[in-house]
C-alpha cells in the first residue's frame, strides 16, 4: 500500500522475542486493534450487529477468541476488538461498516504494545508484576491492571499463556519490567 515502513513498539523492524529460563516473551505486531463503544441506548443494536458480523463482545473481565475477530471487555458498553493485522489493518473502517451508527469505533492498534508470555506456569512471574490473582482467575480472564507503574491489559489464556497490552510509548520499560521479574523468579 504505502511506502512507509513500520517500526515495532520496541523500535525495530521485526518483532522481538526474549527468553529467560522457561519464559518466552514475544512482541506481537500482527494484531490490529480497535475500540467499540455503544452509542447511548444502542447496546442491543451493537451486540446484534456484532453477532452477525462475527465480532465477539463478551461480558466484563472476559476475552473471547474468534476468527478473524476476538474481543474483550474494557469498560461499560465498550470493548477492544482484535483481528489479524495483515488482513485487517483497517480494522476501524471494517468495524464501522459492520456496526453502523450504533457504535463509536476508534483505531487503537498503535496505542498499545502487545507481548505474549509463555511458560509452563506464569503465576510466579505475574505475581511479581501485578495484583491479579492469576492462579484463581479462569482462562479468558481479561482485565486492566498495573505493572511497574504502567497501566496494562492482562489477558490470561491459560496457566502458561497470557497477553499483555501496555502503553506503546513505554514498551521498553514494560519489557524490562517483565524480564526483570523473570530473572528474579527463575
Amino acid at each position: 500500500m504505502a511506502s512507509l515502513m513500520a517500526l515495532t513498539a520496541l523500535g525495530r523492524r521485526e518483532p522481538t522475542t526474549v527468553t529467560h529460563g522457561p519464559l518466552t516473551i514475544t512482541e506481537r505486531t500482527d494484531i490490529a486493534l480497535a475500540s467499540v463503544a455503544a452509542r447511548k441506548g444502542r447496546v442491543a443494536d451493537v451486540v446484534a450487529a456484532a453477532q452477525s458480523a462475527g465480532v465477539p463482545l463478551p461480558g466484563p473481565v472476559t476475552y473471547q477468541a474468534g476468527a478473524p475477530y476476538s474481543g474483550f471487555w474494557v469498560a461499560p458498553e465498550m470493548w477492544f476488538v482484535e483481528a489479524p493485522f495483515a488482513t485487517h489493518e483497517l480494522i476501524a473502517d471494517l468495524l464501522k461498516s459492520a456496526l453502523g451508527d450504533a457504535a463509536s469505533v476508534t483505531e487503537q492498534t498503535d496505542a498499545w504494545v502487545a507481548f505474549d508470555l509463555a511458560a509452563d506456569d506464569l503465576a510466579p512471574v505475574l505475581e511479581r508484576l501485578c495484583n491479579v490473582d492469576v492462579r484463581a482467575v479462569p482462562d479468558g480472564h481479561a482485565t486492566r491492571t498495573v505493572m511497574e507503574h504502567l497501566g496494562v491489559y492482562l489477558i490470561k489464556q491459560g496457566r502458561g499463556a497470557a497477553r499483555v497490552y501496555g502503553p506503546r510509548s513505554s514498551a521498553q520499560s514494560l519489557l524490562h519490567a517483565i524480564e526483570t521479574a523473570a530473572h528474579s523468579v527463575w
Partner: peptide, 15 residues
Amino acid sequence: PEMDVQLISTTEAWA
C-alpha cells in the same frame, strides 16, 4: 449522564 458521548484516548495511537 444522559448525553450520548463516547471517549477514548488515542494519544499513543498516532505519531
